[in-house]
Lab assay of single mutants.
Amino acid sequence: VGDQVLEIVPSNEEQIKNLLQLEAQEHLQLDFWKSPTTPGETAHVRVPFVNVQAVKVFLESQGIAYSIMIED
């Protein structure tokens, strides 16, 4: 199991704000291929294997929908 690319769908401005804060966490080494800008629009982010669980827990705790787009 390696890195994953998640497709994330924020449903409101609050969730977009939370994702932008997540993007700013440099220690997570997230690679946003497509940043969140509009509710209902997908964002794509590559998550290093060591941080996959932490990111998924965060998304679930914020009620942000996501799916695994690419499993490496």
Rank of each mutant, 00 (worst) to 15 (best):
Q21D: 12
E13G: 06
G63Q: 07
I70A: 11
L6P: 00
I8H: 00
D3E: 07
K17E: 08
F58P: 00
E14D: 09
Q53P: 10
G40V: 01
I70C: 14
H44T: 15
T38D: 06
A54Y: 15
H27T: 06
Q53T: 10
I16E: 01
T37H: 06
I16A: 03
L28Q: 03
I70Q: 10
Q29E: 07
V47C: 03
N12W: 02
Q21I: 12
Q4R: 07
F58H: 03
Y66Q: 00
V57C: 12
V9L: 11
L6S: 01
N18M: 15
V45D: 00
F32S: 02
I70H: 11
E13A: 09
G63F: 05
A43K: 02
S67F: 09
E13K: 08
V45N: 01
D31T: 15
L20H: 07
I64K: 00
Q21R: 13
P36F: 05
D3M: 14
P39S: 04
K34Y: 05
N18I: 15
I70F: 13
D3V: 12
V55C: 02
Q62K: 15
T38P: 02
Q62H: 14
L22H: 03
M69N: 04
V57H: 12
Y66M: 01
E60V: 06
V57P: 00
I64R: 00
P39L: 06
P48M: 04
D72C: 15
Q4W: 15
H27K: 08
E60G: 04
Q29Y: 08
I64D: 00
A43Q: 03
I68T: 05
A24Q: 12
M69D: 03
E23G: 13
D72N: 11
V9G: 02
M69C: 12
L30N: 01
H27W: 14
V45S: 01
T38V: 13
L22E: 02
E71L: 09
Q25A: 11
L20W: 12
L28V: 04
K34I: 09
Q4Y: 15
I68Q: 04
E60N: 07
A54R: 08
Q4H: 09
S67M: 08
Q4K: 07
W33K: 08
W33T: 13
D3A: 13
V5A: 04
E60C: 05
E13C: 12
F58Y: 11
A54P: 04
D3W: 14
K34W: 07
P39E: 03
V55M: 07
Q29V: 06
V9A: 06
V5E: 05
I70D: 11
I68F: 05
V47S: 01
E7V: 14
Q25E: 08
P39D: 02
R46W: 08
P39R: 03
A65H: 13
R46G: 03
L19Q: 00
I8E: 00
A54G: 04
Y66N: 01
M69R: 05
E26H: 12
K34C: 08
R46T: 05
L6I: 07
F49R: 06
K34A: 06
Y66V: 02
Q29W: 06
V45H: 01
Y66P: 00
V5D: 04
V50Y: 09
K17N: 09
F32D: 01
N51Y: 15
I64N: 00
D3P: 06
E13R: 07
S67W: 10
K17I: 10
Q25W: 13
D31P: 03
H27F: 09
D31A: 12
S11D: 09
F32H: 02
I8Q: 00
D31S: 13
E23K: 15
F49Y: 11
V5C: 15
K17V: 08
H27G: 11
F32M: 04
E41P: 03
M69S: 06
R46N: 04
E13H: 12
P10V: 07
G2S: 07
Q53A: 12
K34H: 08
G63W: 03
K34F: 05
E14F: 08
L28A: 03
S11V: 13
G2L: 09
Q62F: 14
Q29R: 12
K34E: 07
E41I: 09
G2A: 08
A43I: 15
I64T: 01
L20G: 05
S11H: 10
V57Q: 13
Q15M: 04
Q62C: 14
T38G: 07
Q29L: 09
V9E: 05
T37R: 06
I16M: 07
Y66T: 01
S61P: 01
